[in-house]
Nucleic acid binder design. Sequence first.
DNA 1: GCCAGATCAGACAGACCTGTCTACCCAACC
DNA 2: GGTTGGGTAGACAGGTCTGTCTGATCTGGC
Lengths: 194, 194
Amino acid sequence: MSVTATIPSEGRAPARERLLAAADELFYAEGVQSVGIDRIIEHAGVAKASLYNLFGSKEALISAYLESRHRGALERIKAAVARHRDPRKRLLAVFDAQGEIFAEPGFRGCAIVTATAEVADGSVIDKAAEEYRAEMLALLTDLARDAGVAKPERLARQLHLVYDGAGVAARMDRDPSIARCARAAADALLDASL
Amino acid sequence: MSVTATIPSEGRAPARERLLAAADELFYAEGVQSVGIDRIIEHAGVAKASLYNLFGSKEALISAYLESRHRGALERIKAAVARHRDPRKRLLAVFDAQGEIFAEPGFRGCAIVTATAEVADGSVIDKAAEEYRAEMLALLTDLARDAGVAKPERLARQLHLVYDGAGVAARMDRDPSIARCARAAADALLDASL
DNA sequence: GCCAGATCAGACAGACCTGTCTACCCAACC
DNA sequence: GGTTGGGTAGACAGGTCTGTCTGATCTGGC
């Protein structure tokens, strides 16, 4: 389990990282089902055997890709939250961060939402998604509690709805500005919960 | 273009209907990408040649399936709306209907949202989705206007967010009760818009 | 009876998929 | 200098995919 980080032969990232980068790019842009292993390894400049040595299966690579995407998004959101001290601003910062993410070139919705839509129920991917969603809901619940609302769980669920909806709408309507709409809705829902 | 409805040989629906029924069942349950033509025709009891005579391609069959799903959902929602005269109740009826749909066995989220997540950008399916989303937004805008809010377009966008989010959450968390949460959020957003 | 059109069953082509396997290369370490 | 381990390159197996094609069968209308 120790990732001893054998220093790569200078200038080139190790195969594992190159594979994850390629997976991130291709899986996200075209879907985990549509993109085959061959394209991943070609894009990463890695031999097929290396992929199977390092990850074991395509599904495991998808899991790692989703994990990394989720970590990245949550990190960005938490960083945006941390830039404020006022509880209301902290809560709304979630949607500010969402707006930034939406505006990035190549944005195509929440990777986890789209990936679960591609695979049948009960896959390993579903299990990962469950975990990730719980984490997001917990964050929103904390922020709602800090904002002093009477029923933080209740508001958190509502905000989670708005968060999910914004992700879907931004992708399907190709409209990053929907995040401002989500922010306004969150603001109103917070007011209504006080 | 005239669907002259040649009466089927008694007891058996015509091939087109059986294909659509099979597509509806399998595509929805397992995804349009994962389900192959062979399984569709086997389930429908139809020859492969008939499918290609009637629809021309798998993509066209998917389009027809999405069209039918969308029609059905919108019809149900409009029927629920029509059961009320009070503008607020009419607006909230959208989310009541959503709750009914969520509670049905085999519910797996909005077919259009999941289908667009499966295909690359720019496909025919994307174009259809655009149309369907506009229709939904128009309905919400009408309801918001009738409820007498100052900026109906603004509220409609927010409600659309909640609607989309509820669909995603109901699928991913396997929790139909999220519709009540969405209804409450819609109620609060309506209040805040008056 | 007979024909036209719809439908059926299934082989087939050509592409693509995941995952395995062999064989070679090269750098680091003892 | 030899060994070990991670990496590369690519063939291969066995399966699945969409879409086409051939030919048989059924049914309604004349």
